[in-house]
Design a protein around this nucleic acid. Structure first.
Lengths: 237, 237
DNA sequence: GAGGGGCATTGATCCGCGTCAACGTCCGGC
DNA sequence: GCCGGACGTTGACGCGGATCAATGCCCCTC
């Protein structure tokens, strides 16, 4: 549920002034289309740990994240969890546009998201093939990432998994204009473990080992990449 | 490379008579569009183990499989392999429509595939939003399957992996009109292992264990599901 | 600033699956 | 019908990462 004081980053300027517009699906929309979209959009804020939606629920809304990070995950009946992705500003939730959500999503840290009713958004897309094309590009990009993640989960060691993850996160932050050797990791160790198919203890031990080897330095809410060459060798192997 | 005697299943009737048309992306095309598509199509046959394309190559063609099974896989520099999917009749290879192939594909058994040059196909799609929509549905379906596979690879045990795989293959054959408790498995044990993130020995041992438990029976080129209830319990857990 | 709860780290031990090795089975060729 | 090679199965053993358990470290609350 949206929280009361909504620090809407789009408040001034609307969609045209949205700071994630150019990296989101909205980048392909013309000014008049942005205005039409704006009429459908509802900005919502979510507190840390708050739920956006749950796997199996009626998919009545789609979202573009404008601030913060969400985790997307599936659960087994016995509680085992697999995080299938982390959503950052500019990311679109609801590519599938199915009747029901295929995974659950909740906020790692406070989030602001642009919300659309699925039926309205679907009609909007149907009338705009260039937006559909954009959505398809996003979907195939996600599919490629998912296949990379299959390789990681099925065939890589714990150390390779963690290093690949760090380099991947660095690249994602870089695309958001936050290129740095310091990689923010707002998610918990448990989240990282559930993304990489490991346990929290193995994640922690592997971080410690990499830090001992001076490949990384552990800093508050993230890591600093100290030896990129070595890290890239570990990830490539 | 295509082999000489090409047993083209579409030869009589063209696209309109294609036996996978209604389950392929082509199902949404009108008769006149099928004729236009037919002019672009080239049917090709591949022998078992023959390569359709290799990861990283220029993606100059897209395919719809019309007969046989292909394996889609990624390799690490040291030879570790992850199979990201098996393609069956009706499946489309080239959803991404990127400059380069994101994975390699080769024939598990003799294949017949409908081949299109990527540039021509891309132009064809651009002029037909309903086909783009169909491709997007295929892409999001693949994405959902990929996320299920992430759950399987990251969080399931060897036995759960194998049972889930068997039930999944049964459902795929069923959608092709070959519903049966006997599940054909034309791929090798090594292929199954590389799909499930296991070794060939573990796959073999797990098959033997399931057969000893009378949950399955191992038959030439497949398995017979003997105790569906038990198998479904194992897969759900 | 004392208490407490959530998260992370570290150590000891265990075990599922990988590794290594031997053997069996099928099948195609000559 | 014998041979050879590819593929599959089975057994013995080892290891990477899971499990179990204790401790540490924040940070929040009162």
């Amino acid at each position: 549920m949206p929280h009361a004081p909504c620090p809407n980053p789009n408040a001034s300027g609307g969609c045209a002034g949205c700071r994630v517009r150019l990296i989101s699906v909205c980048a392909v929309l013309a000014p008049d289309e942005l205005l039409a979209l704006e009429a459908m959009a509802g900005d919502t804020a979510f507190a840390a740990k708050e739920t956006l939606f749950i796997q199996g629920e009626d998919a009545d809304a789609v979202y573009t994240i404008t601030a913060g990070m969400a985790r997307l995950y599936k659960l087994l009946p016995d509680g085992r969890r697999q995080i299938v992705g982390f959503a950052l500003p500019g990311d679109f939730l609801g590519l599938a546009m199915r009747e029901r959500y295929g995974f659950s999503a909740d906020a790692v840290e406070p989030i602001v998201a642009c919300r659309f009713s699925r039926s309205a958004y679907s009609a909007f897309v149907d009338a705009r093939p260039h937006l559909l094309r954009r959505l398809h590009e996003f979907a195939t990009h996600e599919l490629t990432l998912a296949q990379d993640q299959m390789m990681l989960l099925g065939r890589r060691t714990a150390e390779e998994k963690l290093v690949s993850f760090l380099l991947h996160m660095r690249d994602r932050w870089a695309r958001l204009g936050r290129a740095s050797v310091t990689v923010p990791l707002p998610m918990s160790r448990q989240d990282i473990a559930d993304f990489l198919g490991l346990t929290i203890e193995t994640v922690s031990r592997t971080f410690t080992k990499l830090a001992k080897d001076k490949a990384i330095a552990i800093v508050p809410d993230g890591v600093r990449l100290m030896n990129l060459e070595r890290l890239e060798t570990l990830a490539a192997a």
